[in-house]
Simulated assay, not measured.
Amino acid sequence: MLVGQVRAVPGYFDRMSPFSMDVVKCVALVAMLIDHMNDILLSPSSPLLYAVGRMAMPLFALIFAFNMAKQPGRAQELAKRQWKWAIITQPFFAFAFYDHQPWYALNILFVFAVCSQLVAWIYPRTRYCWIKSVLIIAIFAWPLSLASYGLAGIAFVLISVLMLASLSSGKIVPLLWVLSLFSLNAASLMTAPIIEVVVFAIIPTLCLPLFVLTLIDNVEAAGKRFLPRQTFYWLYCAHLLVLGIISVLLSTRGQ
Score class of each variant (00 low, 15 high):
125 R>D: 09
163 M>N: 00
107 N>S: 10
212 V>Q: 01
23 V>C: 10
244 G>K: 01
228 P>W: 09
168 S>H: 14
115 C>D: 02
82 Q>S: 09
212 V>N: 00
237 C>G: 08
112 F>A: 02
204 P>G: 03
126 T>P: 09
74 R>Q: 15
144 L>K: 07
91 P>Q: 03
83 W>V: 01
9 V>D: 03
13 F>E: 02
251 S>Q: 15
245 I>Y: 06
172 I>D: 08
116 S>R: 01
240 L>I: 11
6 V>Q: 06
157 V>M: 05
142 W>R: 13
213 L>A: 03
74 R>S: 15
8 A>D: 15
167 L>C: 11
147 A>T: 07
84 K>G: 12
233 Y>T: 07
26 C>E: 04
8 A>G: 12
36 H>Y: 11
150 G>D: 01
149 Y>K: 01
128 Y>A: 12
60 F>H: 00
32 M>S: 07
11 G>V: 05
230 Q>C: 10
235 L>V: 10
79 A>K: 01
106 L>G: 03
241 L>F: 04
209 P>D: 04
129 C>Y: 05
244 G>T: 06
224 K>S: 12
86 A>D: 00
152 A>F: 07
158 L>S: 05
46 S>K: 02
6 V>W: 14
19 F>W: 14
12 Y>V: 02
30 V>G: 07
254 G>M: 12
145 S>N: 07
202 I>Q: 07
175 L>I: 14
33 L>Y: 15
148 S>P: 06
196 E>I: 07
103 W>T: 11
147 A>R: 06
45 S>G: 11
217 D>M: 07
152 A>L: 06
234 W>K: 11
51 A>T: 05
43 S>N: 14
115 C>M: 08
162 L>P: 01
3 V>T: 10
71 Q>H: 14
202 I>R: 06
43 S>H: 15
104 Y>E: 05
96 A>G: 05
174 P>N: 08
10 P>Y: 06
190 M>S: 12
198 V>M: 13
249 L>A: 13
16 M>G: 02
25 K>M: 11
197 V>F: 08
193 P>A: 12
39 D>G: 09
120 A>R: 01
31 A>S: 13
238 A>Y: 10
199 V>W: 12
226 F>A: 08
198 V>I: 10
251 S>K: 15
13 F>D: 00
85 W>R: 00
50 Y>F: 15
24 V>A: 01
151 L>V: 04
25 K>G: 05
106 L>A: 03
244 G>D: 04
216 I>Q: 02
45 S>F: 08
155 A>V: 10
72 P>Q: 10
206 L>M: 09
174 P>S: 06
77 E>Q: 13
39 D>L: 13
143 P>C: 08
238 A>T: 13
106 L>C: 02
168 S>D: 11
92 F>D: 02
225 R>M: 04
188 S>T: 08
254 G>K: 15
18 P>K: 08
27 V>M: 04
